[in-house]
Simulated scan of single mutants.
Amino acid sequence: MTGRSQSSRRGPQAEKPAGSALVFVIDDDVSMRRSLANLFRSVGLDVIAFGSAQEMLQASLPDVASCLVLDVRLPGLSGLELQTELAKLNLRIPIIFITGHGDIPMTVKAMKGGAVDFLTKPFRDQELLDAVVAATERDRKRREVEKAVASLQSSFETLSPREQAVMKLVTAGLMNKQIAAELGLAEITIKIYRGQVMKKMGARSLADLIRMAEPLGIRPNRPEQA
């Protein structure tokens, strides 16, 4: 880690991610841990620092957009081992590895494990800040997508089994007459079910409904008769 860049170009120092963002730091070197925390706070980011992987695993982590700046070599559980543990716990925090002893196999293992970046000391402050901004934005977008899918799933679960069957057939491209034949119902009944589906799902058009089907895992094929 070097001194901060004095370049006049507009960088992450002026581009704090929108909304709250949190950076977790794990480094057993007290001076490095303090230096990293000060750097992130200087651009308006919140920081929680730990001296070991075990400390983080035992902590109650805030449920906000975040990333983890993680030293590879740590006492006890190593950075790479922590990456594996977080994956097992389904804690998908974007990880930026930092190390003074990096090698190709280590880098490959970290990146295959889903790391956002792997920085070898000494690195520029700006380089680390770029990685942190990108990682927190990535986590924010993931959270937004998951929230939207959860909302869709909640709406889908308000549909009756028959309405769900109609939605699946509508989004598969079948016309009301075809759906009526598929389900053994009158066409006017299908029109009523279709209107109820549109209302409950909050769809303004057929295109809206089709876009909703994909994240719900609804595939364009005909289900068996409900």
Rank of each mutant, 00 (worst) to 15 (best):
M1L: 15
M1G: 14
G3S: 06
S7I: 00
S8M: 10
A21N: 02
D27H: 03
S31G: 03
S31I: 15
S31C: 07
R33F: 00
A37H: 04
F40Q: 06
S42K: 07
G44V: 03
D46G: 10
V47W: 06
Q54F: 05
Q54N: 11
L57I: 12
S60I: 14
D71Y: 05
R73P: 00
L74M: 14
G76L: 00
L77C: 10
G79S: 08
L80G: 07
T84E: 12
T84S: 08
L86V: 06
L91S: 11
P94T: 10
P94Q: 01
I98R: 00
I104G: 01
P105E: 10
M106S: 15
M106N: 09
K109N: 01
K109H: 06
A110Y: 07
T120V: 12
E127P: 03
E127L: 09
L129D: 13
A131M: 02
A135L: 00
T136H: 01
E137C: 12
R140K: 15
R140C: 04
A148W: 04
V149K: 10
A150D: 09
Q153T: 14
Q153W: 14
Q153A: 14
S154N: 09
F156V: 09
R162Q: 12
R162P: 11
K168C: 10
E182Y: 07
L183P: 00
A186N: 14
I192Q: 01
K199L: 11
M201H: 11
G202S: 11
R204G: 15
S205A: 13
L206Q: 15
D208A: 02
L209N: 04
M212L: 04
L216W: 14
N221F: 09
N221H: 08
R222Q: 06
P223R: 08
Q225T: 13
